[in-house]
Design a protein around this nucleic acid. Structure first.
Lengths: 209, 209
DNA sequence: TTTAATATCCCCCTATTATGGTATTGATGG
DNA sequence: CCATCAATACCATAATAGGGGGATATTAAA
């Protein structure tokens, strides 16, 4: 049973190129190819493809929007985004919308077939430069101890950020309530905040804990 | 000028296999190979490799720790992790620690050379199943309104999670202090919490806001 | 050896938050 | 028309948190 592929790509040459490339192989069957994504959701529902190749930059409705619409009804079809740009403007939007892979067009010729196999096996094929963007996002530079908190203070902030009251923190660490308060005061000084809420917010957002 | 490669891998067979594989190509030069990562930082500082291949599971000091140590002094050397496991236990630790790529050992034979080229070009080579883990992390399924918060309640929780006091929230939203308190009560009910700290923690961790 | 930093504890007083009520308004759907 | 929900508002009381002190002990650095 061949893998059913559906293509959305406004550039006619590329679209036909993709079809040619994939039709060379028996294991793929192109169940449709379209120059815009206006009816993407309906088309997907009707065609029931295994894999969708979706250009990001299309007139009318763009690829990211189309993915969102498809994902309202269908969470299993694998979607690979195709784009010429590797700036991060659309990468995250697309991945958040529910895309499973992200290929740069310059990598299509050597990686597309592999990429299709990979999504079907539950992988997430990405051009390496895209993967780097994603990882960089994860890397969120943790400016080691920007606020010069001591180990104990970090411990207390960690506990506070779990939602624990002073009383609980004291019990958890086996110290007195008053000691917890003293630590908290110094933590607030160092973080330049004046309340639990600000402290927790800062701790979690800046990944201090 | 050849690309200088440094290898840390405790399995002798694999380590020598990697050396053999890479020495077949003129563009690579193995500047060292080690069965453990105890001196990883010093070795990297001395050898100044372009690319480090780092096994995750090693006796003594593991690969993730080694990466952390290297990254204390060196942010530019490209590091590719090698592992047999594609569970997510170590993936994020390694990427957070500063690894640039993540290859499963079963993908080494067909992807290693490509992966090395890719990190050097600023990419982040990953086995597709690893990439999928990373993307899944991004996808953070926001179980749309798991707690049935109303729009207004979400607004208030959002403001609270920025560290604002009830008074500030009231001012920001142009409603009375007492109204804020009423909303907060209902939010706590719905989230099953009993304090600001717990609410903020839950809101931020489960990305409710 | 003095100093500095850290961790520990206590007191007083005020401010804010938590919990329990009650109540009015407007919109929405049977 | 009535029930329901969301949003608004108020009161009283108890609990927790915040800001200002001051104090001792340990450890590490100067």
């Amino acid at each position: 049973m061949p893998v059913k592929i559906l293509i959305f790509e406004d550039n006619t040459n590329l679209r036909e190129g993709l079809c040619q490339l994939l039709m060379l192989r028996d294991e793929f069957e192109i169940v449709g190819n379209f120059g815009d994504a206006k009816q993407a959701r309906e088309i997907v529902i009707n065609c029931r493809p295994d894999v969708v190749l979706m250009d990001i930059d299309m007139p009318g409705i763009n690829g990211v929007e189309a993915v969102k619409q498809i994902r309202e009804y269908d969470l299993t079809t694998q979607i690979i985004m195709l784009t010429v740009f590797d700036d991060n403007s659309h990468v995250f939007d697309a991945l958040m919308a529910g895309a499973n892979g992200y290929l740069l067009k310059r990598n299509v010729s050597d990686r597309l077939v592999l990429a299709i196999q990979e999504v079907l096996e539950g992988g997430a094929p990405m051009s390496p430069s895209i993967a780097r963007l994603v990882i960089d996002q994860l890397h969120v530079q943790k400016p080691a101890n920007k606020y010069m908190l001591s180990e104990r203070e970090k411990e207390i902030l960690r506990s506070l950020s779990k939602g624990n009251s002073f009383k609980l923190i004291a019990a958890e660490l086996g110290i007195s309530f008053e000691t917890v308060r003293t630590h908290i005061k110094r933590i607030y000084d160092k973080l330049h905040v004046h309340s639990q809420g600000e402290a927790i917010s800062k701790a979690l957002h800046e990944k201090l804990v």
